[in-house]
Design a protein around this nucleic acid. Structure first.
Length: 295
DNA sequence: GCTCTATCACCAGACGGG
DNA sequence: CCCCGTCC
DNA sequence: ACATGGTGATAGAG
């Protein structure tokens, strides 16, 4: 889940920590990408007309493979060496979020059934997208494809975002590319947005540098994490959160000194903080570039 | 008229032929 | 360039 | 992912 308004907060308060970049400036660089996020997008959009998707002779969905292959080719042609990071089991704190998604999909399926029964094309289009779920099979299909074309695959022990931020911190990739601002909270030193956007969409690659953000906003990393948790979980704006952190230094001190804000019951901020500060990641993975399998 | 700003509908993969 | 059909 | 965020058209203010 994203942190609402973090981009704007950075634009306003750390403008020199972010810069527009050209795709060419990443020529030859290794860049980590969240695979599951990509697969989800492909399943939603690639070759879809109503409930119809791209399928093979056996009737199995191939939209994710189609999307993954061509996107990867684009990156490679731009001289970028992608490293795809796959999600492992989610942390407990995300369980309720996942339960929410599950029930949304269930509701989507019901509404889809109604739409199909009444032949409402518009509704079929709308609700079929809500039933999309990335399965283990989709993930395995894509891992196999990537390995066959010699693109490194990393299997995260838990959250992919955490893993690729760790890869970046360890210098094993130059940067991470995502649309989810959580990557910054996980401390990926260089974070790119809009890397995959086609040039036709006329949106430049945006590069964020953590050290500059911290310097310019006058925060340490722990405070930046607290800021993200405050403005993410908690219903206050980014600017207010920033002021509170500057004033009090940490969530604990804010809660001690301020009671005019409504605190959610059992707000698990310290668990959230732990997920960002000490996420479950693997360091043995060394994304090797394999030679393409000619078959 | 002109530029700057505010709103709002609209869109979300990639390719290639015509 | 855009438009639109195709990818499986 | 009925999310969110960026875009481009349009309208109003100075």
């Amino acid at each position: 889940m994203g942190i609402k308004g973090l981009t704007k907060l950075l634009v306003d308060n750390a403008p020199t920590a972010m810069k527009e970049q050209k795709l060419e400036s990443y020529f030859g660089r290794r860049i980590a990408v969240d695979a599951s996020m990509s697969i989800y997008q492909f399943l939603v959009v690639v070759g879809r007309k109503g409930t119809q998707m791209l399928i093979n002779e056996a009737g199995e969905v191939t939209s994710h493979l189609q999307g993954m292959l061509y996107r990867t080719i684009r990156l490679l042609e731009a001289g970028i060496k992608p490293v795809y990071v796959f999600d492992g089991p989610p942390p407990d704190l995300k369980k309720q979020e996942l339960a929410k998604r599950f029930s949304k999909r269930a509701a989507g399926s019901e509404e889809l059934a109604v739409a199909i029964a009444s032949r409402n094309k518009e509704d079929i289009e709308k609700f079929s997208k809500r039933t999309v779920k990335v399965t283990q099979q989709h993930n395995e299909d894509c891992k196999r494809l990537l390995r066959l074309i010699g693109v490194p695959v990393v299997e995260a022990p838990s959250e992919a975002e955490a893993q690729f931020a760790a890869l970046c911190k360890a210098g094993k990739v130059y940067a991470v590319a995502s649309e989810d601002m959580d990557s910054l909270t996980f401390g990926a030193p260089i974070f790119l947005r809009h890397l995959m956007d086609p040039s036709s969409r006329k949106v430049p690659v945006m590069e964020f540098e953590i050290p500059k953000i911290l310097e310019e906003m006058n925060l340490d990393m722990d405070q930046f994490i607290d800021l993200c948790i405050l403005s993410g979980d908690y219903c206050i704006g980014g600017l207010t959160a920033l002021k509170l952190i500057h004033q009090h230094g940490s969530i604990e001190n804010i809660l001690e000194n301020i009671n005019k804000y409504q605190i959610p019951d059992n707000w698990p901020y310290s668990e959230a903080r732990l997920l960002f500060k000490e996420p479950i990641v693997s360091m043995e993975e060394k994304p090797e570039i394999n030679t393409p399998n000619e078959e």
